[in-house]
Design a protein around this nucleic acid. Structure first.
Lengths: 133, 133
DNA sequence: TTCCTTGTCAACCTTTCGGTTGAAGAAATC
DNA sequence: GATTTCTTCAACCGAAAGGTTGACAAGGAA
C-alpha cells in the first residue's frame, strides 16, 4: 500500500488516532509528548504515527532544543479535496443526466429513448487515476 | 483498523486500485467483470475490493440475472469533505491569526505582543474527533 | 438435463500495520 | 562529567490487508 502521495494521505487518515492528532494540531503546534498525552499508548507508538503523517506530507517537524514540534501542513488537504470533488461532481452530473432521461421518457412516452441510461456496457475505461479535467 | 465509517472510507480509498474503480464507476455503473478487466488480478481479488468499498458505503450493489451491477454512492464523499474542510479552515484561520500577530509586532514594535503565537503549551485538547462546529 | 457465465466463499500465504519493550541519540541542566 | 528530558531506532509480535487457487452457488442458454 501507499505508492503515491494520495495513497499515503488517505492511508494516514484511515487511522482514528492519527485523525485525532490532526484535529489536535489544527488548534496549535505540539510536541510528541503533548500529542501522546491523551492516548494510553507508548511514546514510540506516537512517534511512529507521526512518521506516517510526515511521510504523507500532512505534518512537518522543526527542532527546538530536544523537542521536535509538529506542525500541520494543511495544503495537502487540497490534494484530497480535488480528488474527491472531481468524482463527486461527475457522479452528480450523471445523476442529473439520468433524471433528464427519465423526464424525457415520461414526456415522450416510453420506447423513444435509446441507449446510455445505465449499464451502457461499452467499457471504454481503463486506468482513470490521472485523467479527466 | 476501520472502526467507524470515516475510517472505513479513508481506508478504502487508500488503495490505488479501489480509487481507480471509483473513478470508473463515476462514469457509469459496471459489473464485476467489467471492473476487473483493466487489472491483471483475479476476479476474486476484485470481488474483495468491492466488498471493502461496499462496507465503506462508497458503492451499492443490485441484482440483474447473474450479474451484480455496482453503483457509486457519492453522498459518502460529503462525510470526508466535511471532515477535511473543518480542519483545513481551522488551520487557515490559525495561520491568519499568526499573520495578524506578526503585523501587530512590526506595527507596535517588538515586545508588546503577549503569548499565544505558537507553542501555547496549554494542552487543553483530548479526543477531538467529534467536537467543534 | 447439461453446460456456460457470473460471481462469491473458504482456505491459505506473504507483507504491512500498529503495538510492545529495550537501547540509544541529542540537548539542556546539575 | 553525570544526569535528566525528549525523542527516535531496532527487534519482535499478533492481527489485518491483499493476493492466490479451488470449490460452488445462481441463473440463463443449448
Amino acid at each position: 500500500m501507499a505508492a503515491d502521495q494520495l495513497s499515503r494521505v488517505f492511508s494516514a487518515l484511515a487511522d482514528p488516532t492519527r485523525r485525532d492528532m490532526v484535529a489536535r494540531l489544527a488548534v496549535d503546534d505540539a510536541t510528541v509528548n503533548q500529542l501522546a498525552a491523551p492516548y494510553d499508548v507508548s511514546l514510540q507508538a506516537v512517534s511512529k504515527h507521526l512518521k506516517v503523517l510526515e511521510a504523507a506530507g500532512l505534518v512537518s517537524r522543526s527542532r527546538e532544543a530536544q523537542r521536535r514540534p509538529v506542525h500541520l501542513e494543511a495544503q495537502v488537504f487540497d490534494l484530497m479535496t480535488k480528488w474527491i470533488e472531481r468524482y463527486r461532481r461527475q457522479a452528480e452530473e450523471r445523476y442529473q443526466r439520468l433524471d433528464a432521461v427519465l423526464a424525457a421518457m415520461t414526456e415522450d412516452g416510453p420506447g423513444t429513448t435509446q441507449a446510455g441510461t445505465t449499464q451502457a456496457g461499452t467499457t471504454q475505461s481503463s486506468s482513470s487515476e490521472g485523467a479527466a479535467s
